[in-house]
C-alpha cells in the first residue's frame, strides 16, 4: 500500500515532538536536518550509520581554505534568469536579494552563489522531470553571481511553481529555489533551498520539515519586502544566508 500523507504527517509530528522534548530537557538546538530523516524516504539508504569523525583545531587543514571564483566564472547576465533566451519567460517576475554571511556575521565577499529552480508551472528543464506541466522555451532556471564587498547578492527570476514528487501518495513540494554557496572555507560549503512566505504546502513537505527546529525552518523562508519591489516590473524578496563551519581566518585571529 502506498504511503499516505497521513502516514508522513504522523512521522513528522513524532520526530518534532521528540526534538522539542530534548530541547525542553536542555539539549542544544540543532539547525541542520538529520541525515536519517525517515519521512524523506530517499534518506533511508543514503546516510552513514557510523558517527562522523570530528576534525578540529589544526590550521593546516585543507578544508579551512576554499576554491575561489572570479569575474571569468560568471557573465554579466547570469544573475538575471529572465534574460537568457530571446523571449520573456512566463510567470511572476521577482527579484531575490540578500547577504551571504559567516556565522560571526561577517560578509562573505566575492564568492560564488549558484541557483536553480523549476519554471512558473513547476517543471524543471531536466529530462528526468516528467511532471506533466509545460516547459517554458524562454526559461532554463539556472543563475550565478559573485557576492559584493558587503556579501550582497541579487537575482532576477520568475517565481517557481509547486510540483509533485513520489515520496508518498499526493506529495507536493512547496515552491522553492535551490541555492549553492561557497564561503571562505570549504567547511562552509552549503546547498539549501529558499521558500516563499505563507505557502500552504509547508506542513505537508517532509523536506522542509526535516529541519525540526522551528526557528531554523523559518530561516529558510524569504521575506516579502515591498521596498525591493520595482514599480510596473517585479516583486521583491529578501533572504540572508548564514554559513556554518570554521575557516582559516578564525584560527589566525585566535577565535578558537
Amino acid at each position: 500500500m502506498p504511503l499516505s500523507q497521513q502516514d508522513i504527517d504522523r512521522e513528522v509530528a513524532e520526530l518534532r515532538d521528540a526534538y522539542e522534548k530534548s530541547r525542553a530537557a536542555g539539549a542544544p538546538a540543532v539547525r541542520h536536518p538529520a541525515r536519517n530523516y525517515a519521512p524523506y524516504r530517499s534518506s533511508a539508504l543514503r546516510h552513514p550509520r557510523q558517527p562522523l569523525v570530528p576534525v578540529h583545531g589544526d590550521p593546516e587543514t585543507v578544508e579551512l581554505h576554499t576554491p575561489v571564483f572570479g569575474t571569468t566564472d560568471v557573465t554579466d547576465i547570469d544573475h538575471d534568469l529572465t534574460r537568457q533566451h530571446h523571449g520573456e519567460p512566463l510567470g511572476e517576475r521577482i527579484t531575490v536579494s540578500g547577504r551571504l554571511l559567516d556565522s560571526t556575521g561577517r560578509p562573505v565577499r566575492g564568492q560564488l552563489i549558484e541557483l536553480w529552480q523549476a519554471n512558473s508551472a513547476g517543471r524543471y528543464a531536466h529530462l528526468r522531470d516528467q511532471h506533466p506541466a509545460p516547459l517554458d522555451p524562454n526559461f532554463t532556471g539556472v543563475g550565478r553571481t559573485l557576492t559584493g564587498d558587503d556579501g550582497s547578492y541579487n537575482f532576477t527570476t520568475i517565481k517557481p511553481g509547486a510540483y509533485p514528487w513520489r515520496n508518498h501518495e499526493n506529495a507536493w513540494r512547496p515552491a522553492h529555489i535551490h541555492f549553492s554557496l561557497f564561503g571562505s572555507a570549504f567547511t562552509q560549503r552549503l546547498i539549501t533551498q529558499m521558500y516563499f512566505p505563507n505557502d500552504p504546502l509547508f506542513d505537508y513537505d517532509p523536506i522542509l520539515q526535516s529541519v525540526t527546529d522551528e526557528s531554523a525552518r523559518q530561516a529558510l523562508v524569504a521575506t516579502y519586502d515591498h521596498s525591493l519591489s520595482q514599480p510596473e516590473w517585479s516583486l521583491g524578496y529578501r533572504w540572508d544566508i548564514v554559513l556554518d563551519g570554521p575557516s582559516a581566518t578564525w584560527f589566525e585571529e585566535g577565535r578558537r
Binding site: R31, P33, H178, V211, V242
Partner: peptide, 17 residues
C-alpha cells in the same frame, strides 16, 4: 551572532545547473 542557514538536499534535478 547569526544562526546558520540549514542545509537541504541537492535533490534530483541539479544536473542542468
Amino acid at each position: 551572532s547569526p544562526q546558520p542557514t540549514p542545509s537541504h538536499t541537492v535533490g534530483p534535478f541539479y544536473g542542468y545547473a
